[in-house]
C-alpha cells in the first residue's frame, strides 16, 4: 500500500511500526564488520568468527530475555546474579541430571518472585530486581566465595562440541532465537506483551486489561522468561569457563539492557523487535571483538560502549508512541 520512499522514511523514523529504530544500528553493525574485515587480517578467519559467536552468545541470550521485560516497560537487573548463581550451582559437584534442571527451577522461582513483587506488591522494577540482584549475589558468594569447582562434562560438551563441523554455540543461538520468536511473534502471549507495554508507554496501565488481557500474569511470566534465559546464559558460560564463578555475571544485566536499547527497543515499553535486539548484540560483540583485534585495552572499550549507546539512542529521533 505504501510507496517505497515512505517505507524507507518509516524505517528511519520508526513511524507506523512498532519494531523500533533498528536501521541505524544495523548499518553501524555492517560498517563495523566490513571495516574490521578490511583493516585486520584475523577478523575473517574461521577461528575468530567462531570465537565471536561464542563470546557474544551469553549476551545474546540474556539480551533476548531482557527484551521481554523491557517490552512491558520493565527492567531486570538481577540477571547478572542469576548467571553467576547458575555457574555456582553447576559447579557443585553434583550430577548434571540434578543441577541442570535445578538451575532452571531456581531461575524460574527468582523470576516469579521478581514478577510478584512488581505486579502484586507494586514495587518499581528497578528496586525489585536490584534487591533480587543482591540477594542472589549473596547466596552465590556463600556457595562459592571464589571461582572454582568443575561443571559436568555434558555441559562442557554442549558448548565446546560441534555437529556436522558446526560449533555448538551456533545452535544455542538458533534455539534461543526460535524460542523467542515463537513466544513474541507466533503466540497470543507475545502480542499481549506488546499490548501491555503500549498501554504502559501511553500512560494507561489498564489499557490492555480492559481488553480482557491478564496483564499481571503476563508481566510476571515475562520476568520468569527473562530469568530462564539468564539461566540458559549461565549454563553456556559454565561450559566455557568449566567452573563456578561468583563474578562471571557481573554487570551482564547492564550489557543486556544496552544491547536491547541499541537495537531500538524503547525502554518505556511496547516498541521493539527481536531482530533489533540481535543487531544490538552484534554491535556490542563486534565492538569488543574488534577492539581485541586492534589491541585496544578493555577500559577504552567500556568508554566507547557508553559513547556508542548515547550516540545511537540520541541520534534517533524517538517520539513517545501515541502522541
Amino acid at each position: 500500500m505504501t510507496s517505497p520512499s515512505s517505507t524507507l522514511g518509516k524505517l528511519i523514523t520508526g513511524r507506523g511500526s512498532r519494531q523500533g529504530l533498528w536501521l541505524l544500528p544495523f548499518i553501524i553493525a555492517i560498517a563495523m564488520a566490513l571495516w574490521l574485515a578490511i583493516t585486520t587480517s584475523q577478523f575473517g578467519q574461521w577461528s575468530n568468527l567462531t570465537n565471536l559467536v561464542a563470546q557474544g552468545m551469553p549476551l545474546l541470550i540474556t539480551a533476548v530475555g531482557q527484551m521481554f521485560v523491557v517490552l512491558v516497560g520493565g527492567l531486570d537487573l538481577s540477571i547478572g546474579s542469576v548467571v553467576s548463581f547458575t555457574t555456582a550451582i553447576l559447579a557443585l559437584d553434583l550430577p548434571g541430571y540434578l543441577t541442570i534442571p535445578g538451575v532452571f527451577l531456581f531461575a524460574g522461582l527468582i523470576g516469579a518472585t521478581n514478577g510478584y513483587c512488581i505486579t502484586r506488591l507494586n514495587v518499581h522494577p528497578i528496586v525489585a530486581t536490584l534487591s533480587m540482584q543482591y540477594v542472589v549475589l549473596g547466596i552465590t558468594r556463600v556457595l562459592r566465595p571464589v571461582s572454582g569447582g568443575t561443571v559436568p562434562d555434558s555441559v562442557r560438551w554442549l558448548v565446546e562440541g560441534s555437529i556436522f563441523g558446526l560449533p555448538l554455540p551456533l545452535f544455542w543461538g538458533v534455539v534461543t532465537l526460535l524460542v523467542a520468536w515463537k513466544l513474541l511473534y507466533g503466540s497470543r502471549y507475545g502480542l499481549h506483551l506488546f499490548a501491555i507495554g503500549g498501554g504502559v508507554a501511553s500512560g494507561s496501565n489498564d489499557a490492555a486489561r480492559n481488553f480482557g488481557i491478564p496483564a499481571n500474569r503476563n508481566i510476571l511470566l515475562a520476568y520468569v522468561i527473562c530469568s530462564l534465559f539468564a539461566a540458559l546464559a549461565g549454563l553456556f558460560l559454565a561450559g566455557r569457563i568449566v567452573s563456578g564463578d561468583p563474578n562471571v555475571g557481573l554487570l551482564m544485566e547492564l550489557d543486556a539492557i544496552t544491547a536491547v536499547a541499541i537495537g531500538g527497543t524503547q525502554l518505556s515499553g511496547g516498541v521493539g523487535s527481536l531482530h533489533g535486539t540481535v543487531i544490538g548484540v552484534a554491535v556490542l560483540a563486534l565492538l569488543s571483538n574488534g577492539m581485541n583485534l586492534l589491541n585496544v585495552t578493555p577500559f577504552v572499550q567500556t568508554a566507547i560502549k557508553g559513547v556508542l549507546l548515547m550516540a545511537v539512542v540520541a541520534l534517533q529521533s524517538r517520539k513517545k508512541i501515541g502522541l
Binding site: L191, F194, A195, G198, G199, A201, F211, I213, G270
Partner: peptide, 18 residues
Amino acid sequence: LSLLPNMTIAENMFLGRE
C-alpha cells in the same frame, strides 16, 4: 480512548480474542 497506540487496527479489534 482505549485503543492501544502501538498495535495495528486489526490487532486492536481482536486483542484478547485473537
